[in-house]
């Protein structure tokens, strides 16, 4: 029963990892950008949630109404102000600039909020649970998983059924020709980053409700998201959810064997899958 429980809890945790990963996957799909600061932006969102919650005295979930648009604005500004200048054929500039951003964000948060761990209090939501077949399911992990599924379904729908999604796919296919259709690449990329950070905003607030957080934990969140993306297969959003779940289950099983092995088990699962399925579980057929 312990093992089944570990698998179920790991699956639910995978929803959070999928939220970490979805934003990463989105911007890679649209502009081939890998954002090294992604994890630190998740942590930034958690701190924004904390600040909003304590300043206005509202429930952490209500803070989403402010955090998500704020993160989207930050994303748009970041892309138009800095990141668009780094995009070209060369791999190094975007990588090194986002790496620099990561260091700036981490130390900026340290400066403002100190290294003390913080946590958002969601009251009853954190402790409430339902008993299903002998396994106690927390309402919070359930809600997180449901929201991850909803976010990914929403992104998938946006990608394939809206004008914005069409613009994303066209720009991803061929930037110059998309420009001929009247799509301003700089703006399209700005919107992609805005959307990516909006999702990051949701991920950050849930992270802050689920665990205590501090400025140094961004790197690990980036890695979890990255692992979920690669396990699932690049450019496949539902695959990303599956990747998050695989990662969550591997960590839960590792923790079940020995608490010190939780993270290690996740990384090893990733490396094993990289060795046997380098294109991920669900590679995109159209490349």
């Amino acid at each position: 029963m312990d093992w089944l429980n570990a698998i179920v809890q790991g699956t639910l945790l995978g929803g959070l990892y999928a939220l970490f990963a979805a934003g990463l996957s989105l911007i890679f799909g649209v502009m081939r950008l890998v954002n090294i600061a992604h994890g630190d932006l998740i942590v930034l969102a958690a701190y924004l949630g904390l600040t909003v919650t304590s300043a206005l005295g509202i429930h952490p979930l209500a803070s989403l109404l402010l955090v998500v648009p704020a993160m989207a604005l930050i994303g748009y500004g970041l892309q138009r102000g800095i990141l668009n200048r780094t995009l070209g054929g060369d791999l190094l500039p975007p990588l090194l600039v986002t790496f620099g951003l990561s260091v700036i964000l981490q130390n900026g948060l340290l400066e403002i909020y100190s290294a003390d761990p913080q946590k958002m209090n969601a009251g009853l939501l954190e402790t409430a649970s339902v008993l299903v077949g002998g396994i106690s399911l927390g309402i919070l992990p359930l809600a997180m998983f449901a929201i991850a599924v909803a976010v990914i379904a929403g992104l998938q729908w946006m990608f394939y059924h809206t004008a914005l999604g069409r613009a994303f796919r066209a720009t991803s296919d061929n930037q110059a020709i998309a420009q001929l259709m009247g799509l301003n690449r700089a703006h399209v990329f700005g919107l992609a980053m805005a959307l990516s950070l909006a999702v990051t905003g949701i991920a950050g607030v849930f992270l802050g409700i689920r665990t205590s957080f501090d400025p140094s934990m961004g790197g690990a969140r980036l890695i979890f998201g990255f692992e979920a993306v690669i396990i699932g297969g690049l450019g496949n959003l539902w695959g990303t959810l599956a990747g998050g779940v695989v990662l969550g289950i591997a960590q839960a099983i590792g923790a079940q064997i020995n608490p010190g092995w939780q993270l290690l088990a996740g990384h090893i699962a990733f490396l094993v899958l990289l060795a046997v399925r380098p294109k991920g579980l669900f590679p995109r057929m159209d490349g």
Partner: peptide, 12 residues
């Protein structure tokens, strides 16, 4: 655009 259908290519 290879990722777009015929009609989507026209619409865009």
């Amino acid at each position: 655009f290879p990722s777009l259908s015929v009609e989507e290519n026209l619409i865009i």
